[in-house]
């Protein structure tokens, strides 16, 4: 079994939102501002013309961090949120009671209420649509025109993601909370 993670070469992101569209399409996400599994964070340019800080302007694509120590999982009263064999944090809609405690506990605002199942949902690394069929890509990664996303098995030392994490400096979001995210930002 694999332990999937994603590395983001976020400085290449051009904020085209292809990943957002691809995710909606792939997973049938309903319309509406609250219904999103993936987003592109926008850092505004700082400073006044002509002294603009170019370095301050960047985009930070993000989604569920697939935490190895996921607060959303610990707080779930019915174990509806669980780690699957690939280390992906998943929600079993049959068990979810919609207490929304996980939305409260997730430090990344990665969860939303899916009105189709009336339960909480989130990015699942396309487990239902791709990983289950043996594919090792995700919709957001496959579509990205500037190849921001590198998806793969962290346990396999030969995988592209393992190599890039060995070669390049990277950081994770809110790592100080001890959530051990499996999303890595390459600097």
């Amino acid at each position: 079994m694999a332990r999937y993670g994603m590395a983001l070469d976020y400085k290449s992101c051009i904020n085209c939102k292809a990943c957002e569209s691809a995710c909606k399409e792939e997973n049938g996400i309903l319309l509406g501002a609250d219904n999103h599994r993936i987003w592109v964070g926008v850092n505004e340019i700082e400073g006044l013309f002509p002294d603009l800080s170019i370095g301050s302007s960047n985009f930070q694509p993000s989604q569920c961090q697939q935490c190895d120590n996921a607060p959303c999982q610990t707080v779930c009263p019915t174990n509806a949120t669980y780690y699957d064999d690939n280390g992906v944090v998943r929600v079993n809609p049959d068990q979810c009671i919609l207490c929304t405690y996980c939305m409260q506990a997730c430090p990344y605002d990665a969860r939303y209420v899916d009105d189709r199942t009336v339960t909480v949902d989130k990015c699942n690394f396309c487990s239902d649509t791709r990983l289950i069929h043996g594919e090792t890509t995700t919709a957001c990664q496959a579509t990205c025109p500037t190849k921001v996303r590198i998806f793969g098995d962290l346990d396999d030392p030969e995988s592209e993601i393992s190599q890039v994490l060995r070669d390049r400096e990277h950081y994770s979001l809110k790592a100080h909370l001890g959530t051990k995210p499996k999303l890595f930002y390459l600097t």
């Binding site: 707080v75 009263p77 019915t78 068990q95 207490c99």
Partner: peptide, 22 residues
């Protein structure tokens, strides 16, 4: 709670012992 009946069932079947809500 969105699904109170389901809550009673899965509180017993698959208790989340690390959950303060449980």
């Amino acid at each position: 709670i969105g699904h109170p009946v389901r809550m009673v069932i899965y509180n017993i079947l698959t208790p989340g012992l690390t959950s303060a809500i449980w």
